[in-house]
Design a protein around this nucleic acid. Structure first.
Lengths: 362, 362
DNA sequence: AATTATTTGTGCGTATGTATC
DNA sequence: AGATACATACGCACAAATAAT
């Protein structure tokens, strides 16, 4: 049995949620409530006192009690928060800092602060972060998905955020089994163009290295496949390699896989390579086997990083709009915070020709 | 005439301020207060209720009311915040991401969240950020100073934070005109060792490139000077160059300065170079003038980044404990939050020999 | 393990003070 | 001036949690 004063509180709260009482309206007087609900004065007063403490009503001596401005359901998380949570998989990779920089620029101009979290590519960490975030008073959330190609167990937490009315925007990738808003790079198209570029340069036997656990890896693979098929070229699975994201334990394993892969590359004249970092690892390994880039093998990679720019052989790479992606995502999230509906957008990128591709005369 | 319940409140508050009641102590029972102060139960209850609302006491059914831990005057801003602000000059440089990664790791393990701000190396932005931060409820603040070599106009904001009891820890550098706690790299010693290394390799005419507006630039210059003087070597100011941090407007200007500098390098066999990025810019320019590294000129740089690692000529560079610095700073800040006093610590680093230095036979 | 005393929580009735309209 | 409404204050009764016996 609920206490009577609680029943009085609920009675008034119900009137607010059912909109019989609107902000500014006067609540029934104490004597009225006594008669209507058949309770004592003391009980009514205790109820009104607590509602007053909870900022639901405001009472004035000699006048009465009045509903406060904020509506009841939005009071818990007052929508004037100026904090945005950024949940990333990695913060020390080659593109995050630039992206972050663009994002921070746009958001700070509008007076927002960024709360930074990193999952270190672990879905259990992602879950903990989402739980913590759910309890916070946020204006919005930007998420770089963790292991985006794999089924994600944290869907209901994202649903919970949306249910609270907090906009969630994904960048870089998204969870394909969830209904989400995102701003990504059109990786399928980018990979298609990377592969086309090699074909235009006369290459026919083209392999690839892709990342197995994120969506970008799958999409880049898809673009590569589409292009090869459209051009009627044979796909040799010996010339395709999948790598998982390196954690502390996988580094050695990945090195072994790479060595094995290089040993099977005979006949392959060009590779589409998941990103500049992978390309550099690959080229280090090729150097061991006395294979020259681009003379023996050509490479097109992705992300167009400084790292690939300054490597011994500068790496021809699909562009990545790092800072722009951050700025754009920031602006889109601000739109969503204003109440407009989200977007699902894939940005197109072009190729940056450098020195890792040789034209074949055929 | 004050209301009686207010008198009861004052009676209890007085007992707290006069330390007759200490945190954790039990307040007189209601019946006792009724007898002692000769008021009704209702009055006593109203007083205790309000004190409970004000977080002065905590009451338990069947047990009594107890004084809360926090002292009366500090109750306004309750010190249980789990948010730490990180104020950096740049977030898209070569070492911040690693540092941030280490920091986040340590802090998130203890349940802290990071609020990220960047000044973009502008002291006016720094001021705005500090003002915003001052209004927030923070557990601590970590600052990478902005233009640390120049006089900083925001000293009183840092003083304000400290006055509020919020620990402030500087990393990377500090403002030398302020009394602050910090964890930095011992740049004087590092530069001394960089220069010693070149001398040991037979170099005598050694120049340098330094950053003019941050403390690290000055300290590295100082270490270089000390070393040259200790070894009785002549310092040729033509072989020393100062660069300011590049903003959008300064890039072109810096390029011109660099060109001019390279043209004066005749007779100089080695350079101490502020960091790997500067070294790469320099080497690009040297290449224009058909000067080879290390054959024509040797270079030792700082920060030991991937960028320098993978450059055409891998750059011999003083190490930088990026992730460790972040972790260490995080742990130190946690200590300070626990109430222990701050530290002023300079970490020693060693050299990473790569391929940008040639030994001279003399 | 059950009992008892203590202490806070809920609730009613009544009376008086004081601000608002 | 009077009606209305909230604020302060006293007294009583019973419920429920706690701690000591």
């Amino acid at each position: 049995m609920k206490p009577k004063y609680q029943q009085v509180k609920d009675y008034i709260k119900d009137q607010i949620t059912s909109e019989k009482l609107l902000p500014g309206d006067k609540v029934m007087s104490e004597t009225e409530l006594i008669q209507v609900l058949d309770v004592s004065r003391h009980t009514v007063r205790k109820a009104l006192n607590e509602l007053s403490m909870e900022q639901v009503i405001e009472t004035f001596k000699g006048k009465g009690s009045f509903i406060k401005d904020m509506s009841l359901d939005k009071r818990s998380h007052n929508r004037q928060s100026k904090v945005i949570a950024l949940v990333t998989a990695f913060i020390n990779d080659t593109i995050f800092p630039e992206l972050m920089n663009g994002l921070e620029q746009v958001l700070s101009e509008e007076g927002y602060s960024i709360m930074l979290y990193t999952t270190r590519n672990r879905v259990d960490s992602e879950r903990e972060i989402l739980q913590k975030i759910y309890e916070m008073d946020l204006a919005g959330v930007i998420v770089e998905p963790t292991k985006s190609a794999l089924p994600n167990p944290n869907g209901r937490f994202y649903e919970g955020l949306k249910a609270k009315g907090i906009p969630v925007l994904f960048i870089h990738a998204y969870y394909h089994h969830m209904d989400c808003d995102y701003v990504i790079v059109d990786d399928v198209k980018a990979a298609y163009e990377a592969c086309s570029y090699l074909i235009n340069k006369g290459h026919r036997k083209i392999g690839g290295i892709f990342k197995s656990d994120d969506l970008q890896g799958h999409k880049r693979y898809e673009g590569y496949l589409n292009c090869m098929i459209d051009h009627g070229l044979h796909i040799n699975e010996d010339h395709i390699m999948w790598q998982a994201t390196e954690d502390e334990h996988a580094i050695f394993n990945n090195k072994m896989l790479l060595k094995d892969f290089v040993s099977r590359l005979k006949g392959c004249s060009a590779l589409v390579c998941y990103n500049d970092e992978f390309a550099i690892d690959l080229m280090e390994e090729l150097e061991q086997e006395a294979l020259q880039v681009p003379d023996d093998i050509s490479i097109v990679a992705f992300d167009n990083t400084k790292l690939g720019d300054n490597y011994k052989v500068s790496i021809t790479s699909m562009d990545h709009p790092k800072a722009y992606l951050g700025q754009h995502a920031g602006r889109q999230l601000l739109r969503m915070i204003e109440g407009e509906k989200g977007i699902q957008e894939a940005l197109e990128v072009s190729i940056h020709e450098k020195s890792s591709v040789k034209a074949l005369q055929s």
